[in-house]
Design a protein around this nucleic acid. Structure first.
Lengths: 212, 212
DNA sequence: GGAAGTAATGGACTGTGGTCCGGTTACTTC
DNA sequence: GAAGTAACCGGACCACAGTCCATTACTTCC
């Protein structure tokens, strides 16, 4: 049940280092300080008024920092949202890799996929606006993010294990596409489904897709 | 095989009438003229430079019309995109209701769903940027649009017919969610799949979901 | 054909995400 | 401790989506 060397989730690390492949030079002290100030400010404002309803200008102002600094650090709105979610995302990843079944290793693949779904729904339920912000942005940007790659690899492997006949790649993407913030909030608010109903639907989806 | 009174697709009709439920008062002559001018201008510019890469200001200018007029007519960018797609959408709807099998009535439900997918992929292939624009916009707006409702009702009924045991509602939404412009372009450009490969994947999805 | 009433117009205006760059500050080297 | 340099800073700036409302153009009714 070894996972492949799924690139670990960075994202407390500034965007630049993530990009310029060798994050060798250490982060300057003032930069680190400012990053913390921004994260704290964003966290505060988001908690107060909801992740939508807060502009980037306001976050910069609240943090006592220029707008340029904000964007230099986090790239864009989605990047900031990702950084704020980082802790939860690490937790989740940790549970996937080393947690107890059915989320962690040990359970049947289908059960692990359902547990993955349940975990995501839980996260969506408590951090919906933030995750929506992280997934937003031009076109297919979110698919490029290492978090997406990690989730995809996880589901890919489990799907293959559950049913070697299936098109793992496509199935993994379809499953993830059913776990987006946008789709979730449509089911929840647009269709009025409860968290449980959504989970039941997803579980049924998994069973049918990987009936083996 | 009668469809329920699926609200027909309007959308050459201005947004207002769509909303204020009784489109009684006729459209003024200058308004109609301007609408045509805008549609023509948008069509031209989109064809020239791609649907992204054209701002609303430019469309208004090209049409020789004020910005206010543009937005009054079409509500927002997505509304304009919908209006431009209207003809194709009507065509498609017509084929669903009265065309020949497997897209139209007469074929087995699973085959009709696959044909629906094939039709959407075809449209996505030739009008991708436009459809993406129509589906864009804040949060879950696109789910409210009558076109979504019509597609959903169609799939809902076919899914029920194919497999009465399945959760039709959820399945219909999952299927539609696998036919979005965003997901399509991810599979296409992000994963490098061909049109055919995507169709095969979707067909397999349908078979597995509605195995009966 | 003209007056009154109403719908449509257009462009200035606002708010927002994101970029740019001259000036500043923190580390490094000697 | 001074000088050099690369990274960082902030806020002015830009483009763009969408709003507002005083003015204009159509329609209708006499």
């Amino acid at each position: 049940m070894k996972q492949p060397a799924v690139s670990h989730i960075p994202e407390t690390v500034p965007m630049q280092e993530l990009v310029q492949l060798g994050g060798e030079s250490r982060e300057r002290a003032d930069a680190a300080r400012n990053r913390e100030k921004v994260l704290a400010a964003a966290s505060r404002l988001f908690a107060e008024r909801g992740a939508d309803h807060v502009s980037m200008d306001e976050i910069a102002a609240e943090a006592g920092v220029g707008k340029g600094t904000l964007f230099r650090r986090f790239g864009d709105r989605a990047g900031l949202a990702h950084a704020l979610l980082d802790e939860h995302e690490r937790d989740f990843q940790e549970q996937l890799l080393r947690g107890s079944p059915p989320l962690g290793p040990g359970a049947a693949p289908c059960e692990r996929i359902k547990a993955f779904g349940a975990g995501r729904f839980q996260l969506l339920d408590s951090h919906h606006a933030l995750i929506a912000a992280a997934e937003a942005g031009p076109a297919t940007r979110r698919f490029i993010h290492p978090v997406y790659a990690a989730h995809r690899a996880h589901l890919y492997i489990l799907a293959r294990e559950a049913d070697p006949e299936v098109d793992f790649e496509y199935v993994a993407d379809v499953l993830l596409n059913s776990l987006t913030a946008e789709f979730f909030s449509y089911l929840r608010n647009g269709r009025g489904l409860s968290l449980e109903e959504i989970q039941v639907g997803f579980n049924d989806l998994v069973d049918r897709l990987l009936a083996g």
